[in-house]
Amino acid sequence: MDFGSIIDAAFSNAFGPQAIVFALAAIGLNIHFGYTGLLNFGQAGFMAVGAFGLAVAMVRLDLPLPVGILVGLVASAVLALILGVPTLRLRADYLAIVTIAAAEILRLVFGAVETKAVFGGSNGLNGFTETWNSLNPYSKGIDVGFASWSRNDLWAMTVGWVVVALCCLLTWALMRSPWGRVLRSIREDEDAVRSLGKNVFLYKMQALMLGGVIGGLGGIFFALKQASVVPSDYSTNLTFFAYTALLIGGAARVLGPVVGSMIFWFLISGLGAFFSQATSGIDPLIPASVMTDTQASLIRYILMGLGLMLLMIYRPQGIFGDRKEIALDAR
């Protein structure tokens, strides 16, 4: 067993581009769920709209990268508007179902044969990263001993972590302000807030749009770092995993989603590498009669499901959350 490569996989992914995608998605969810109490189960949809906004603008309309990014962000803001107008007046669990349904509709439409001319069918779109790659200042990858990244990863990480830091800064500034105070109050009791003369609907809409746009940013980053947009990447599982990351770190904490995403990817990659090694080779640690390597690749998701349940039951505030100040009253 090569523990070095397991540690390498775990750390490389904990700090790598994939963790950044999740961090952005989870920061958006933190604004929705952690601070405002909105159950958005369609974050994958916001990400997909951001990613396809970018890709369609650049591939089909030949627009430059900055315009593509703008299109992606505007598209996710528009999605928030379209979903929010009708559902923000409904019960919290209805918002959950409408957003999950909307995200599925988007994924199906993006991947459909009938819309292939625009969205590229199930293979999606690629060929929009020329500008992105040309801006890469790095000439080669890096190996720091316990982790290693390629040249492209390094570039994505540089931009990505700066964007994550800016989003965290924005969240911090907003949540210490009276605006954030209104959001946290809505999370607890929106009727009380309404009785004090605040337009609750407007605040919820602003929160939904802000979190959706940050999710869209996550989708755009996802598209750029893997140089393609594939509809099946934006399934509901993506939303569920982003929630898991958020809850690991702790909802309603500025850095909760970031730390949570890093831990999530550390565990997923570390466990993945461990079980992959344990079942491969001539004389595997775990014999094939116990589990095959295909089965072994599932263990991490089984543990993730179990972990999410246990986390929710025994430590709903996450690792860094304060039990007194969270949306989840699990007691």
């Binding site: 159950l39 919290a92 669990d93 959950a96 599982n237 569920f240 929630y243 898991t244 809850l247 998701y301 089984i302 993730m304 499901g305 179990l306 972990g307 999410l308 349940m309 986390l311 929710m312 039951i313 709903p316 949306a327 989840l328 009253d329 699990a330 007691r331």
Partner: peptide
């Protein structure tokens, strides 16, 4: 346990 927390537990159980 609150209903939202239970909902998330059910997501975990589904995944499992």
């Amino acid at each position: 346990t609150g209903i939202i927390a239970m909902m998330i537990v059910s997501i975990g159980l589904g995944l499992l």
